[in-house]
Amino acid sequence: MTEQLPAITFYVLSFAALGGAVSMMATRNVVHAAFWLLEVMLATAGIYLLLSAEFLALVQVLVYAGAVAVLTLFVIMLTLRRREDAVRPYPVGWGSLALAALLTGIVLVAITRFEPTLAALPEAAPGVEAFGREMFSTWMLPFEIASLVLLVALVGAVWWAGGEDR
């Protein structure tokens, strides 16, 4: 008999994530949508904790719930001239809905067929210390490349968003 994930916690977090995502699509207000996205990101951090990925949960809260949410809200604020502009007409987009539903349906069928192979949860999950050791031994080169990518993205973002006098 193997270890189990706590079912109630999982269902609560899944409900929070899916409900937040649906509300994000259902609301007409862009600012409300940004806050619903923030809620989805926090629920995802909870799911990472459930999967004993503590470091990723921390990064998720710092990067997505912190930096990305603030950045999104700032851009919404800077690109709205009046408060009423936040409330937008609601395009249903039946074609997009059908396409997304079709893809999701195909993936769900694939998951049900995949089910019998991997069901049991393995016992051991290493902690943050092992994660750090792996990060700076096996994944050293990708880590350096990632820092370079972030630097280039930072410079590019400043250049694009910069002032008028160029």
């Binding site: 899944s14 899916l18 809905l97 396409l99 998951i111 069901a119 949860l121």
Partner: peptide, 22 residues
């Protein structure tokens, strides 16, 4: 709760995001 539940959650979130992006 096993792997299929998590994959289902992820597929549903991906579908909602795809609908929004399109």
């Amino acid at each position: 709760v096993g792997l299929p539940h998590l994959l289902t959650l992820s597929a549903l979130l991906f579908g909602i995001g795809m609908y929004g992006a399109l």
